[in-house]
Computed example of a mutant assay.
Amino acid sequence: MPGEALAAVGLDPRAVGGGGVRRVTLPDGRAAVVKRDPSVPAEAAGLRWLAVPGGPPVPEVYAADAEWLVTQEVPAGSASAVAAEEFGRRLAALHDAGAPDFGAPPPGGPADAWIGATGMRNEPGDSWPEWYAEHRILAYVRRADLPDTAVFDEVCARLPELAGPPEPPARLHGDLWSGNVLWSVEGAWLIDPAAHGGHRETDLAMLALFGLPHLERVLAGYDETAPLAEGWRSRVPLHQLFPLLVHTVLFGGGYASRASAAAHAALRAV
């Protein structure tokens, strides 16, 4: 029932207010974050799925229902090179926890999930090139305002040769831009996932989009723990197509040209 998550932690809906995200103190003294949004059932399932031994810390889900999510507040801190390397090692452990299929949702999570403020379909598939083409490129090309879609069609047609060596489905955060990495006294935490089974290089490519601090140290820690396949750097534009197309759907503007440039770069990489 709506509001049952608030009742479970002793919060009065009238005191919390309407939608959005806000920090609160629970009656038992715990610092928490309260969020009201249609995406919270998927987010709650994703946070629980990402909480793996040896992985990056994620906020504990205190309570969740169909519209409200109450989670642990992440203690504030700052980025450091040492913390970045540890984050890379922990991210490798998270990916290694795996998923049943590419596109598999977290247990209990909806197939029709969210990435940011737009929909994301978690439709399982056993071939990453085919799945990525249909559900992470073309699904957003169809919805985006793009001057020319031919380059995206070519990328999808050539994905089997562009994809690199086959890899098993990894357990992805799914929206791993720098704003969803919170640096605390305990290292890097992950928030706001769009979790699903996917290719581990997609999470790493997202980290590079908007300037994560100490990114090279993160990648060094990751590669030390779970060596990346040869040529992975050349595939970064291919994996960035997904978030760039999502941003094109949401915001338009220059993201359309950035997505087109990434598609051309992906084709030049082989």
Rank of each mutant, 00 (worst) to 15 (best):
G197H: 00
P193I: 10
A226R: 15
A205H: 12
H135D: 01
L207W: 03
H173V: 10
D223Q: 06
A170W: 05
A139T: 05
E161N: 12
G221V: 06
R158N: 04
P110Y: 04
V141Q: 15
S178I: 05
E123F: 06
P165I: 03
V141L: 15
W128A: 02
E216R: 14
G198S: 06
H196S: 01
E130N: 10
I191Q: 03
P166V: 04
Y222R: 13
D223G: 04
D148G: 12
R121V: 09
A229S: 04
R121M: 08
L228F: 00
W177L: 07
I115R: 06
A144G: 09
T225Q: 11
L190P: 00
D126K: 05
S184R: 03
R142N: 09
A226M: 09
P124Y: 07
G164V: 08
V218I: 14
G211I: 02
W183Y: 08
P166C: 03
A117K: 15
P193Q: 12
E186D: 04
E130W: 11
L159Y: 01
N122P: 08
A220V: 01
L212S: 05
G197F: 02
A111S: 11
A117P: 15
A111G: 15
N180Q: 10
A139R: 12
P193L: 12
A170P: 03
A194V: 15
W183R: 11
H199K: 14
R143Q: 14
G221A: 07
A195Q: 05
L212R: 10
L172P: 02
A194W: 08
G108Q: 05
L138S: 10
W114L: 07
H135R: 09
M120D: 07
L228G: 03
P107F: 01
A111L: 13
E167S: 13
G125L: 11
